[in-house]
Structure formats: structure tokens, C-alpha cells
């Protein structure tokens, strides 16, 4: 009886421990679609430097001359700072191109993979290691197993 109970609790413990890495980040897969890559080009209209995820709002220029408002999720302010993005480098009016993945609900929201500035500088936005597709572009990310 005691041994069975111990084994049962140990088993539950292992399962819980195994599940933790999946949910430890507010997982990419919970809200974004890896099969819907988007390339957004436009001017920054607002940046919310908030935890646990910063949001960059931008007016995406469309072919017909109008703009469409999008909001792109980045990492935490801390993550972005370490990746080289802060209040001074990303201000309202900055022209950027964001490479990311659209939300599953098909609203104008995306998870940002990287951002490219007008001078060609390209910086990651903190989605690495959160379950976003590992395309090998980010050298700091562990390689895809079996490759």
C-alpha cells in the first residue's frame, strides 16, 4: 500500500516535471500559428514596454496606399534589452520590418521573430525557445534535434 502510493506520487511528480518546460513560457503554440508566417512592414505607432510581453504597434502599409494596424508580441522588456532593442532604438515613427507568425484567431496580432531596421540591422524579438518554429536563424537557439 505504502509502496504503491509512493510510486504513484513519484509518477505524478515525473509527469508534472516533464510538463513544466512546455508551459513555463506563455507558450507560442497557445496563441500563434507556426503555419501562418507574416512579413509586416510599416511605421511604429506605439510601443507597450510591459511585462510579461512587450507589444509593438505598427501601421502596415498596404498596396492600395492605406494602412492596417497590427500589434506584434515581443519578449519581456528584459529579453528585448538583451537582444539590443530598447526605448531608444524603437520609437514611434521608426520604419521597421517584422518577421513573425499570425495569431490563431486571425486577428491583426502576431508573434515577432525578428525585426529589421531601415539601416539593415536585424534583431531577434525574444520568441526563441518559446515553441516558435526553430528555423536555425538564431545562433543562440539550440539546434533542432536530429539535424
Amino acid at each position: 500500500m505504502k509502496r504503491t502510493l509512493f510510486l504513484a506520487l513519484a509518477g505524478i511528480g515525473v509527469l508534472v516535471a516533464a510538463a513544466v518546460p512546455v508551459v513555463a513560457h506563455h507558450a507560442f503554440g497557445a496563441e500563434f500559428d507556426a503555419n501562418r508566417p507574416v512579413l509586416l512592414k510599416g511605421k511604429v505607432t506605439k510601443v507597450e514596454w510591459v511585462n510579461p510581453h512587450a507589444w509593438i504597434h505598427l501601421a502596415v502599409a498596404k498596396a492600395d496606399g492605406t494602412t492596417e494596424d497590427w500589434m506584434v508580441e515581443g519578449g519581456t522588456p528584459n529579453t528585448l534589452l538583451r537582444r539590443g532593442i530598447d526605448r531608444n532604438s524603437l520609437t514611434v515613427g521608426t520604419e521597421i520590418v517584422v518577421d513573425g507568425y499570425q495569431s490563431k484567431d486571425r486577428s491583426n496580432r502576431a508573434n515577432g521573430r525578428d525585426v529589421t531596421f531601415a539601416d539593415g540591422k536585424k534583431l531577434f524579438m525574444g520568441s526563441s525557445g518559446t515553441g516558435a518554429p526553430r528555423d536555425g536563424k538564431d545562433a543562440t537557439e539550440p539546434p533542432v534535434p536530429g539535424r
Binding site: 514596454w49 510591459v50 511585462n51 510579461p52 519581456t76 522588456p77 528584459n78 534589452l81
Partner: peptide, 12 residues
Amino acid sequence: IRESINGYPALL
């Protein structure tokens, strides 16, 4: 608190 670089992760 919500915009902090280290405070928020420390609290969480």
C-alpha cells in the same frame, strides 16, 4: 512594476 527590467521577473 509592469515596465521594470528586473523587478517584474524577481516578483514573479
